[in-house]
């Protein structure tokens, strides 16, 4: 019986992942790396400075203009 396109695409990826050798280690590294980047680094160490400290774009503009023009 001929499989539909979604089943074929699914089994293409499924079999591809299953038959990996070096790829398994690489995927493990990728997943750990993405976890470290997006969960640990982004969440705890890299908040967006302007988004975190100001509520809207008008406030952000005012702040940046103040930073650029304040007498040093």
């Amino acid at each position: 019986m001929k499989q539909n396109i979604f089943t074929r695409v699914f089994s293409f990826y499924y079999e591809g992942f299953r038959s990996m050798t070096v790829g398994r280690t690489l995927w493990l590294i990728i997943l750990i790396k993405l976890f470290v980047m997006f969960v640990i680094l982004k969440l705890f160490f890299f908040p967006n400075f302007l988004k975190t400290n100001f509520e809207n774009d008008a406030q952000r503009s005012d702040y940046v203009i103040e930073q650029l023009t304040k007498p040093k």
Binding site: G23, W27, I30, K33, L34, M37, K42, F46, N48, F49
Partner: peptide
């Protein structure tokens, strides 16, 4: 490719955090 992929995203994090102006 696998080791290097997404390492550039950190630069974008830095833009928002360290280089906001």
């Amino acid at each position: 490719f696998a080791i290097g992929v997404a390492t550039g995203i950190i630069l974008e994090f830095e833009f928002g955090t360290n280089w906001s102006n």
